[in-house]
Nucleic acid binder design. Structure first.
Length: 143
DNA sequence: GCCAACGTTGGC
DNA sequence: GCCAACGTTGGC
């Protein structure tokens, strides 16, 4: 799961302990969010920054929540076509798990994995929520 | 700041 | 349904 560190970083999550992952407005990313289940582990990825990297881990503690920002006219994520009865955007609540003592940079990931193995290293990838195969995730954690 | 790679929008 | 125009993402 990607976040721009100048918007919301792993340090923010460490301080707050838990947060709702709001603001995702891409249907494919939403579909991946909806597949998540309580207890699932996710990588926290810092994007659009000096050294894009996986920086830590978090756990899904609530699944399939309507993203509240879609109902808020003052939010930049407001969606006029969404209603409380028929929400359009769903997300999860996550809990801080750990911050890696050594981050795993995109550069490193590219040397270890192909675009087929790990979508984040695939050229042109822009999805902010991306599935990682169990065995690949295991290998990443051993880096 | 640049630009490739998308996704979305809207005219037709 | 097609596709040009436009907006956004995100690495570099």
């Amino acid at each position: 799961m990607k976040s721009e560190p100048n918007v919301y970083s792993i340090d923010d999550l460490e301080r707050e302990k838990r947060t709702i992952w709001d603001g995702v407005r891409n249907y494919q990313a939403r579909n991946y969010l909806q597949q998540m289940q309580v207890g699932d582990i996710a990588f926290f990825y810092h994007s659009n920054c000096k050294s894009p990297s996986i920086v830590g881990l978090m756990m899904i503690i609530e699944a399939n929540l309507p993203d509240p920002t879609q109902f808020d006219p003052k939010s930049s994520y407001f969606d006029p076509k969404a209603t409380v009865e028929h929400p359009r955007w769903f997300t999860v609540r996550v809990q801080y798990q750990e911050k890696f003592s050594q981050v795993i940079s995109l550069t490193t990931l590219k040397t270890k994995f192909s675009g087929d193995e790990l979508l984040i290293v695939r050229k042109g990838n822009r999805l902010s929520v991306i599935p990682v195969a169990e065995e690949i995730a295991h290998k990443i954690r051993l880096l």
